[in-house]
């Protein structure tokens, strides 16, 4: 090349892909557009569309309800057991669905990742958003069921979003972790399906914390998911329940699930941010 020309003063350095990057507006626009598109494709693609999305947790609820309250008599000591079961299933279903889809998210969007420039974090977050949209609509149905069952409406119902924020944050962090790790390690998928099953039975979804032997209650509640579900039970289903903070043994102990949750979030963001610049090359 002959003598180099002066570089335009407007030039900015291209640093390659990253987890975030770009303006917040663009990041939000992208996440929203992709999440909404996925949501429409997933739930409105078939003829009955959204009905199916609603039917899945309801059918699962139906099966579990028959098994655990009619056959095994699991819920006998638990007040409003069917309501608790439905709420728990919908909340936990959000976690499994979002994380389960996120495992493959980066790989499935290979075309975008390898051929477009955009903040990589959009991919796991839009997957979580898709599931979150579904969660919100399911919760509306749950609340209708709760009211129809005869649980008196209370102000605490409005606290439900307070539970959703940490739940969504944790789900997003796990989604980041899984989607980036799957690119490197393909056995993340089978491992995660086992782990999420373990989490399902290890969290008070089918049971309440009172059914757990005294000595193990605290250990179970150290799992932030268990903690959130148990708190939801007091706020929405059964005001006479102890509440998660009391069950774990006071506010001091409640810091443990909080710390675990924050650690998971930090780990998810850290791993994804570390992987993001080269994720396109590893596909």
């Amino acid at each position: 090349m002959s003598t180099p020309a002066a570089v335009s003063p407007a030039a900015r350095t291209i640093r390659g892909p990253s987890a975030f990057g770009g303006t917040f507006k663009r990041f939000a626009d992208l996440t929203w557009m992709i999440g909404l598109t996925q949501y429409r494709l997933t739930y409105f693609g078939s003829a009955l569309g959204y009905l199916w999305a609603l039917m899945r947790p309801l059918l699962l609820f139906g099966v579990l309800y028959v098994v655990f309250s009619q056959i095994v008599k699991f819920g006998d000591g638990i007040r409003n057991y069917p309501v608790l079961l439905l709420l728990n299933i919908v909340l936990f279903n959000f976690f499994t669905e979002a994380t389960g889809r996120s495992v493959m998210a980066v790989v499935e969007n290979e075309g975008l990742v390898r051929k477009m420039h955009f903040p990589r974090m959009v991919i796991p977050l839009s997957t979580v958003l898709t599931a979150a949209l579904n969660l919100v609509l399911s919760l509306v149905a749950v609340m209708v069921f709760v009211a129809a069952y005869g649980v008196d409406p209370r102000v605490e119902w409005l606290l439900l979003p307070v539970l959703l924020v940490p739940l969504v944050a944790m789900t997003a962090a796990v989604a980041m972790l899984l989607s980036s790790l799957y690119v490197r390690f393909r056995d993340v998928a089978p491992i995660w399906s086992v782990v999420s099953l373990a989490l399902f039975y290890g969290s008070p979804v089918l049971y309440a914390i009172d059914s757990v032997p005294e000595g193990y209650q605290r250990a179970v509640l150290c799992n932030p998911l268990a903690f959130l579900l148990e708190q939801g039970r007091q706020w929405v289903v059964d005001p006479s329940a102890r509440g998660a903070v009391e069950a774990i043994g006071g506010p001091g102990w409640a810091l443990v699930p909080l710390a675990v949750g924050l650690a998971v979030c930090a780990l998810g963001v850290w791993v994804f941010e570390r992987e993001a610049p080269r994720i396109a090359e590893r596909l």
Binding site: I14, R15, G16, P17, R114, K115, H117, A280, E281
Partner: peptide, 9 residues
């Protein structure tokens, strides 16, 4: 792809 910011140099 490096120019486009898809790969990091």
């Amino acid at each position: 792809k490096c120019l486009a910011g898809i790969y990091r140099a």
